[in-house]
Computed example of a mutant assay.
Amino acid sequence: MEREVTPPEPKLPLAPLPSVLIEPIVRAALLEDLGRAGDITTDAIVPSDVRAKVTLAAREAGVVAGLDLALMAFRLVDPAITASIRRVDGSHVSPGEAIATLEGPARGLLTAERVALNFLCHMSGIATATAEVVEAVRGTKARIVDIRKTLPGLRAVQKYAIRAGGGANHRFGLDDGVLIKDNHIAVAGGIPAAIERARAAVGHMVKVEIEVDTLEQLAEVLRFDIDAVLLDNMGPEELRRAVALVDGRAITEASGGITPATAGALAATGVDLLSMGWLTQSVRAIDIGLDHIA
């Protein structure tokens, strides 16, 4: 008898970030760029009544993220600029493919160009890299997550880009989850004291995770009530043994030096999460340009 296969749950559409959240970020970037006198190059060269039509086009393959921030940059500079969206955030694009077409006063288009592209290229780079790692672990239960290694002021949008690439988010800040690391353990005087103090201090909605470097530490941790364990810098064999030792009693997270090349073997151990700081801290932007349409 042929085994019946249950189709996967349909993926929910990517929820956009609220305008009230992204507007201050985009506005601050524009103010930094405009300085004290505005775009003196464009204002000198381009008459105020000239209009233009341009396209945001991918110059390499990737996953789009940050389009709302890019379009907001244009609108804040000149509300008369209009946009026609071709590829939404989370979409895969090919070289030469149009992401959006914009039309309006040429001055506004040129003035907002760099800020808009800074957001779009950087965030699309995060989404693209995330999608690559997600693909590397396909067929396993492991999920790809970020950490708090984000650029100052950009955490919300960088973590949004992770979601656009098919990943998930770790904690957003120090206030929404307990993560006991090696220095906490050292200062507290050991694993038992660190866990007991954390549990006594937080409410019932707050999860507690603890970092371990060895199987011996893990065995000690599992004597206590914890929600997740961070298995730091473990190779596939040690990680497999750690996952077996946990045996479903807590969420397992692997971290430390994970790349697209190593992610598949680590995910095959049965670990629940693979976390990577480089996805937000040092990822390469993808090339997206603003091309004039004659």
Rank of each mutant, 00 (worst) to 15 (best):
P7V: 12
E9G: 00
E9M: 03
L14Q: 07
A15N: 00
P18M: 10
V20T: 14
V26A: 07
A29H: 11
A29T: 14
A37S: 14
T41Q: 09
T42L: 13
D43Q: 15
A44I: 11
D49Q: 15
D49H: 15
V50Q: 14
V50T: 14
R51W: 01
A52Q: 12
A57G: 09
G62S: 12
L67N: 06
L67A: 08
D68Q: 11
A70S: 10
A73G: 15
F74N: 06
R75W: 01
D78T: 03
V88N: 11
V88Q: 12
G90A: 05
H92M: 00
V93D: 12
E97M: 12
A98L: 13
A100V: 08
A100K: 06
T101A: 04
G104H: 06
A106Y: 06
A106V: 10
L109V: 12
L117Q: 09
F119P: 09
S124N: 11
E132S: 05
V133P: 04
V134W: 06
R138H: 13
G139N: 12
V145M: 15
G153R: 14
R163A: 15
R163G: 10
G167F: 03
G167D: 03
G167S: 02
N169D: 10
N169H: 10
R171W: 01
D175T: 13
V178M: 00
L179V: 03
D182H: 03
G189K: 02
I191V: 04
A198E: 00
G203N: 09
H204P: 10
V206M: 07
V208D: 01
I210E: 02
E211G: 03
A219N: 05
L222N: 01
L222P: 01
L222A: 01
R223F: 01
A228Y: 05
V229C: 02
D232S: 06
N233E: 06
G235R: 09
R240E: 10
V243R: 12
V246M: 08
D247C: 04
R249M: 06
R249I: 03
I251H: 05
G257Q: 13
A263E: 10
A265Y: 06
A268E: 15
D272L: 04
L274W: 05
W278C: 08
L279H: 08
T280I: 04
S282A: 15
S282F: 07
A285S: 15
D287V: 05
L290C: 12
A294F: 04
A294Q: 06
